[in-house]
């Protein structure tokens, strides 16, 4: 079955790996696949199409998509600056980009909440403009922009690095303005990476919990995210309902990622 290699330890390490993957990943995910169907398909469908659930799914996927859409230009700008320019403090700035990945989500959650609360540093500044961030869907969006940003930056950076400079130079020599060069030469080359970054930020945003629940306000039908509904259903011991929602979220996420993959392959 396997191509024999002379190196030892294949059986042992494969055994350990399969056991580990089965116990920690496969069996638990199998439980998630199986549990919803004790309601029957009709029960499952009813469970994931309740108005409150639909509102939560809409918020989770909508806010995550919007946040990812904001993160694409923002991440592109930051990645561009980090790769193309040298300036004092660049190394520290580079480390700061990973802050959202390093900071525990609950910590980020309470910090963002305090920042955007009506009396918070930023909340107070925005209040006169009539913009309320904390405890509204806008708060969810802010939190998801925060957690998604490093994904776009880190995915786009290496592509900018590998961008052939001579194409830009050629365009410039041909008399293209800087803007034309960016739009016609640079952006098309970066598009697949930007799409991947968008997908990664989106996927992260859809499932995000810790950084969102503090700032969201969690009002049913308004600012309640789908993962929170799973927690609520579990607290009510509605396991099948919680599993249904979990499975639905996973299925939608994978469908979106698959579509993005397809799109990307067509572009590349």
């Amino acid at each position: 079955m396997t191509r024999r290699s002379a190196l030892p330890g294949f059986g042992l390490t494969l055994g350990i790996t399969l056991t580990w993957v089965s116990l920690i990943v496969l069996i638990p995910l199998a439980a998630l696949m199986l549990r919803p169907w004790e309601l029957g398909f009709a029960g499952f469908w009813a469970s994931v199409t309740e108005p409150r659930v639909l509102a939560a799914l809409q918020l989770s996927f909508g806010a995550a998509a919007l946040a990812a859409a904001v993160n694409v230009p923002l991440g592109l700008l930051i990645a561009w600056v980090m790769v193309r320019y040298r300036f004092p403090g660049r190394r520290i700035a580079d480390a700061v980009i990973d802050m959202p990945l390093a900071l525990p989500t609950a910590v980020a959650g309470i910090a963002l909440t305090a920042l955007f609360a009506p009396k918070g540093w930023l909340g107070e500044a925005l209040a006169p403009l009539g913009i309320k961030v904390a405890y509204t869907p806008l708060g969810v969006l802010m939190a998801l922009i925060f957690v998604g940003l490093p994904f776009v930056v880190r995915i786009v950076e290496p592509v900018i690095q590998d961008l052939p400079v001579d194409a830009e130079e050629a365009a410039a020599v041909l008399g293209a303005t800087r803007f034309q060069t960016l739009r016609r030469v640079v952006l098309p080359a970066l598009a697949p990476a930007l799409l991947t970054g968008f997908g990664a930020a989106l996927a992260r945003g859809v499932g995000e919990y810790g950084s969102v629940i503090f700032i969201a306000g969690n009002r049913p039908m308004v600012s309640e995210i789908a993962p929170l509904l799973i927690v609520i259903r579990l607290e009510q011991l509605n396991y099948a309902g919680a599993a249904s929602l979990g499975l639905a979220m996973l299925a939608i996420s994978f469908a979106i990622l698959l579509t993005i993959n397809r799109l990307q392959r067509r572009m590349a």
């Binding site: 079955m1 396997t2 191509r3 290699s5 190196l7 294949f10 494969l14 790996t17 399969l18 993957v21 990943v25 496969l26 638990p28 995910l29 439980a31 998630l32 549990r35 989500t105 996927a203 859809v206 499932g207 995000e208 919990y209 810790g210 993962p227 929170l228 799973i230 927690v231 579990l234 396991y239 919680a242 599993a243 979990g246 979220m249 996973l250 996420s253 994978f254 990622l257």
Partner: peptide, 30 residues
Amino acid sequence: FEFPGRALLTTLIDLPFSVSPVISGLVWVL
């Protein structure tokens, strides 16, 4: 080593990264 299913195994190992933290807890409660 090269063996059939190697790519699949790699994907499975990466899988937890694309699962919501709440679902990662949920599966154990189930």
